[in-house]
Design a binder for these strands. Structure first.
Lengths: 249, 249
DNA sequence: AAGTGGTCTAGACCACATC
DNA sequence: ATGTGGTCTAGACCACTTG
């Protein structure tokens, strides 16, 4: 056990907050006092505090001090992936369409492009064994030399596709999730005969200049889809915590 | 413009990654080289790199160097709150039940308690004007001296309730989200006559010792519920999301 | 004026990778 | 043996808040 000092400092204060010895709004010992208490330099103390800042336990006000923060009850980390979020195993995919088209009006608005511009339309079906479980429709802003390779179109997820076509990093991604009843078209595609809701996930992707580059909608059979999310106060940050953390707002 | 040096370093390298000059797996200039390049001390350089580490752009291997990381395409930040996730405005709530009961078997398993232990059962209805839009059922592990105040039960969200009863910080929270058709009971409670799916959100809360302390299920009318999530590559996005979505400390 | 946090330096020693 | 990242020091100056 040779825990670095800054981790010890962070762990001690975190424990005090968790135990309720320090309540939201309370001031923490000043950095100078903590230096004395742990016989550590200021940088070491600040590194410890930076971890707690990053985890959302504390905040600091220049010239005043560090304070315990009201917890964010509503924040979760969600892992979504149109293939892996299906409860079973997707073992088959079918490419229904991969065309370069003039976009419909609603897509023009969403992607902020004119109607004369080209977009790539991709339609796919995901299967578990022989059961269709999800129908997938995507629009990608087209540019010359865009690599449209059928093998990629079938197996890649939406952000992966965009990453291949544009930059490695998609800067911003937005999800909208809701439930709805299938219309006749989707009932047919997903072979739904009984009473069955759909889960709809809309994905909008932006490049680093904050321009929309893609819009996709996935319709999942309700009985094959579940989303899981987890609160991110501390557990998720533990890996980072082991390494290093120290930065500022 | 007197940007701190460490932010400048982080911004420069982030830009190179975003532009594709640095690709996943590539090594970054060593910290020593960056010190020379920016005429900065090692601690300042490391602080800049720590930001990128924290944002998920890079990772580091001791004794080798810092490397550009493969982006996490599937990670999103989700803000969920059983009251504010309703698309309209919840302006009325009704407490249907608030009892101390012996838990049913499935809840015993979920909360890891014996059937002889007491749990608090809370049932609520959320209204938009006179329309019921969500039905809410929660189980909380009971302990002596637990403050059960009707006013609190009506207006607090689940994590807030648990926070009041146990600790300020709920250590771990898990969400499961899926769609389903309403049964007769829910059709009646939510006054559903037409074909209408439900969004179901299950919440499981743990205390800091990783013991389950509460399990709740919220059934939303499908037409009143939408979830929004956003990718979390840069921490700036998160803070914006917090600000825009709501939250006042 | 005194105390606080925010930035930064110029070193140091250690653990680990590679050769 | 050399270079890398990981931890840490003992100062410094600045900006800010409060008396």
């Amino acid at each position: 056990m040779k825990l670095p000092v800054y981790l010890k400092i962070a762990a001690d204060i975190r424990e005090k907050i968790l135990k309720g010895e320090l309540r939201p709004g309370d001031a923490i010992y000043s950095e100078h006092e903590l230096c004395r208490e742990y016989n550590a330099s200021r940088m070491t103390v600040r590194k410890g505090l930076a971890i707690l800042l990053n985890e959302g336990y504390i905040y600091s006000i220049q010239g005043k001090g560090n304070y315990v923060k009201e917890p964010e009850h509503d924040k979760y980390v969600l892992y979504f992936n149109e293939i892996k979020s299906i409860t079973g195993k997707v073992n088959n995919m079918k490419l229904l369409k991969a065309d370069i088209i003039k976009p419909p009006v609603d897509i023009c608005n969403l992607l902020q492009i004119s109607e004369s511009k080209n977009v790539v339309l991709i339609e796919r079906l995901f299967y578990e064994d022989d059961e269709p479980v999800a129908y997938d429709k995507k629009f990608l802003v087209y540019f010359k030399g865009m690599p449209i390779i059928e093998k990629e179109l079938i197996f890649y997820t939406f952000p992966e596709l965009v990453a291949k076509s544009f930059d490695v990093y998609t800067m911003k991604k937005e999800l909208t999730i809701y439930a709805k009843m299938p219309d006749e078209f989707l009932k047919d595609k997903l072979k739904i005969s009984e009473l069955m809701p759909l889960m709809v996930v809309e994905q909008k992707l932006y490049n680093k200049d904050n321009r929309p580059v893609g819009f996709g909608t996935v319709y999942f059979r309700g009985d094959y889809f579940k989303l899981f999310a987890q609160a991110s106060l501390s557990d998720d940050n533990n890996k980072k915590l082991v390494k290093e953390n120290f930065f500022s707002p």
